[in-house]
C-alpha cells in the first residue's frame, strides 16, 4: 500500500468524477508524486489496481509526461524556462547559476523547461510549480534559499496545494 488513508480517499473521489476510471491516471499520479516526492513503481502499481488496468499501462502513460519524476528529486523541483522569450532576457543565465549552486544539493532538483507561459515577466521559473518572475540569477537563488530555510512554504513536488 502506497497511498495514505487520506490520499486513498482522495483517489476514490477523483476516480468517481470520470465516466471511465482510466481517466484518473494523471491526477492520481500527481497525488502519489506529491505524497512520495517522485513517482514510484509501487505507486504506479497501486494506481493501476485502482483504475483497473495493468501497471505496465500506467508506467507507459506516465513516462510520456515530463512532470512525473522517475527518481527521487529532493524537496524542491526548480524549473527554469529558457524558451525564446526567456532566452533573450536572461533565462539561460538563471539556469546556469542555479545549476552550479545546487548541483550537489540533494534537496534541490534544477531542470531546464519549455515555455511556462510567463513571458510577460520573463525570465521566469517555478519552484514546485509556483511562479517566480522577473528574475536575475541572484534573485532566483535567494528565492530557492528561502524555500530551503522555510521562509517560503512550498507546494508539493507535483504542485499540489500547500
Amino acid at each position: 500500500m502506497t497511498f495514505t488513508a487520506k490520499n486513498l480517499e482522495r483517489a476514490h473521489a477523483i476516480i468517481a468524477q470520470y465516466p471511465d476510471p482510466h481517466s484518473a491516471i494523471l491526477p492520481l499520479a500527481h497525488v502519489a508524486q506529491d505524497q512520495d516526492g517522485w513517482l514510484t513503481n509501487e505507486a504506479m502499481a497501486e494506481i493501476a489496481e485502482l483504475v483497473g488496468t495493468s501497471s505496465a499501462d500506467v508506467q507507459g502513460v506516465c513516462s510520456f509526461y515530463t512532470m512525473y519524476k522517475r527518481r527521487p528529486c529532493g524537496k524542491l523541483v526548480v524549473s527554469v524556462c529558457t524558451n525564446v522569450t526567456c532566452l533573450v532576457v536572461g533565462g539561460p543565465e538563471v539556469l546556469h547559476h542555479l545549476e552550479a549552486r545546487y548541483g550537489a544539493d540533494d534537496d534541490v532538483f534544477v531542470e531546464e523547461v519549455e515555455c511556462l507561459a510567463a513571458c510577460g515577466n520573463a525570465p521566469a521559473m517555478q519552484v514546485n510549480y509556483e511562479y517566480h518572475e522577473h528574475l536575475t540569477p541572484e534573485m532566483a537563488a535567494a528565492i530557492v534559499d528561502d524555500y530551503k530555510s522555510g521562509v517560503l512554504h512550498a507546494r508539493g513536488v507535483s504542485g499540489g496545494s500547500k
Binding site: H22, S23, A24, L26, V51, V61, Y65, Y68
Partner: peptide
C-alpha cells in the same frame, strides 16, 4: 483536469487521449 507536462496535449485530439488517461 490537470495535465502533466506535454505541449502536444494542446492538440485537441491528443488532449482527448490525455483526458482518457
Amino acid at each position: 483536469h490537470r495535465g502533466a507536462g506535454a505541449y502536444i496535449c494542446g492538440d485537441e485530439s491528443a488532449l482527448i487521449e490525455s483526458l482518457e488517461g
